[in-house]
Amino acid sequence: MLQAIELTKRYEDGQLALDALNLEIKPGEIFFLLGANGAGKTTTINLFLNFIEPTSGQAIIDGIDVMKDPLETKNYISYVSENVMLYGNFTARQNLDFFAKLGGKSHLNKEDYYTIMRKVGLQEQAFEKKLKTFSKGMRQKVGLAIAIIKDAPNILLDEPTSGLDPKSAAELMQILKNLRNAGKSILMCTHDILRAKSVADRVGIMKEGRLVMLRDREEFLQDDLEQLYLEYMQETVMMP
């Protein structure tokens, strides 16, 4: 479970990137966080990962405050970044092996890695190729494989579909659904409203660091999500 309580981040240069965010993502839920560029989505993820310290408020993962025990919370979280970067001189399998061990999975063998890579749709001949020859989408897939292999109860994805071809993106959505069904809490930051419509259990829209809209699946299916998004982008509506 992912929780944000009055989570606020003001950068050293005075930029208020996140303003008192309250959010709870339960196990078995996919939450889509929408928002324009610079809205504060990556900042939210960085706070959950303890990459930056909150100015105030708390980020809580499975009941543990990230600030209090960052090391412990990282056992319970998988992360796929916007632009997955891995060791260019290592092969996909070696990268997978390294990160699996870092994530605490040290008993896996070559076949396990191959299975995961097939699952995320990486072509067979790339398994033993050096990462530096990979396209962006291929790297994203390896990143996804790493997140899946870690098998943590919470998953953070920051625009994971960027660089993926439509088929791979659709496959990713299927994988996310499966993970949700397996009881994971999933926070996905994206600009992709269409995917949100088809996959999300809940959607939030963020604007200038504030969560300006929060809708359940039933609620946003009734309204036109695209229309809602554009409306919220134009005017600031306070949360009820």
């Binding site: 990962l49 412990e72 990282k74 970044s81």
Partner: peptide
């Protein structure tokens, strides 16, 4: 620079 630390430090390593 290339963001590998983001990948590494999202794991339980000091």
């Amino acid at each position: 620079e290339n963001g590998i630390f983001r990948m590494v430090l999202s794991n339980p390593v000091l």
